[in-house]
């Protein structure tokens, strides 16, 4: 059974004549890592807001169709309980800091305090998450005085600490340097290994290719492509839908054009290296 199920879902923001989502049918299974890509304004964030229940609970507008979260219609979910079930990290690190806590430690602990977790467990969780995200040295700092990248890590840590069954993550690395981005992806991958269901919106397709099980391409509020990462990211129509394939995919097609095809189109550099080696041995 699907963990999240969207059936014929369409949505219009209040006062908007255009559909932000149009006739969406999507089944998300427990324990899988889904990547969402597509052009800006294609409906990625709106899809996240729907899965997270912010639509229709916070963003009113016109929602039609059926959104089931763990078998229950999103309209029947209590918003507080939904926030404990589905963690949400979004793009802007500056508004994700509560603004009311004086140390990073207390900022990360805030969600756990709200959930009524026992004090010693809160302390253990905060320390363990801060070590995971390499922010132990920030614990005593004022969260309002951190850089964008540091805030992004703290906001991410605060959500991970809450240990929700599912995580919806909207561009968590927009303020991070390449190493920081790699670290965050490695952590997301670890979360997936521990059984979490993850939906990640991200423009860095090479990382999506490396980590995600399945990729959803959004274009003009519709799902343009949906399937296994390999199939979607090597689909020749990808660019038509405003998404950029990983560079290594171009290499695969260039090899085909040069009449030296690889056995399949690679989507990661590691895969390309292995396919080239294989081809070299064959010839």
């Amino acid at each position: 059974m699907s963990y999240i199920s969207l059936k014929n879902v369409s949505y219009q923001y209040p006062y908007s004549k255009q559909f932000a989502l149009q006739d969406i049918n999507l089944e998300l299974k427990k324990g899988k890592f889904y990547g969402v890509i597509g052009q800006n304004g294609g409906g990625k964030t709106t899809l996240c807001n729907t899965i997270r229940g912010l639509i229709p609970h916070f963003y009113k507008g016109e929602l039609s169709g059926e959104v089931l979260i763990d078998g229950t219609d999103v309209r029947n979910w209590n918003t507080g309980e939904l926030s404990a079930k589905i963690g949400y990290v979004f793009q802007n690190p500056f508004t994700q800091i509560s603004g009311i806590k004086e140390t990073v430690f207390e900022e990360i602990a805030m969600g756990l305090e709200n959930l009524g977790i026992e004090k010693n467990k809160i302390i253990e969780s905060v320390i363990s998450v801060s070590e995971l995200l390499s922010i132990s040295d920030l614990l005593e700092k004022n969260p309002n005085q951190l850089s964008g990248g540091q805030r992004q890590r703290v906001a991410f840590a605060a959500i991970i600490a809450m240990d929700a069954e599912m995580l919806v993550i909207d561009e968590p690395t927009s303020q991070l340097d390449p190493q920081g981005t790699e670290d965050v992806f490695a952590i997301i991958d670890k979360l997936k290994t521990s059984g979490k269901t993850i939906i990640l919106v991200e423009h860095k397709v090479s990382l999506i290719a490396r980590y995600c099980d399945q990729v959803i391409v959004m274009s003009d509020g519709k799902i343009a492509l949906n399937g296994l990462a390999k199939a979607v990211l090597s689909d020749p129509r990808l660019e038509e839908f405003g998404a950029t394939p990983p560079e290594v995919v171009h290499f695969g097609y260039a090899m085909q054009k040069a009449k030296k095809p690889l056995t399949e189109i690679p989507i990661t550099v590691e895969e390309a290296v292995s396919l080239v080696e294989k081809r070299g041995k064959q010839s």
């Binding site: 979004f90 709200n114 906001a155």
Partner: peptide, 18 residues
């Protein structure tokens, strides 16, 4: 966005807070 951020931190959850 602040509302969404607070909601993500289980601000609206109806449980006894620590």
């Amino acid at each position: 966005e602040k509302f969404v951020a607070m909601d993500a931190r289980a601000f609206a959850v109806e449980r006894k807070h620590t």
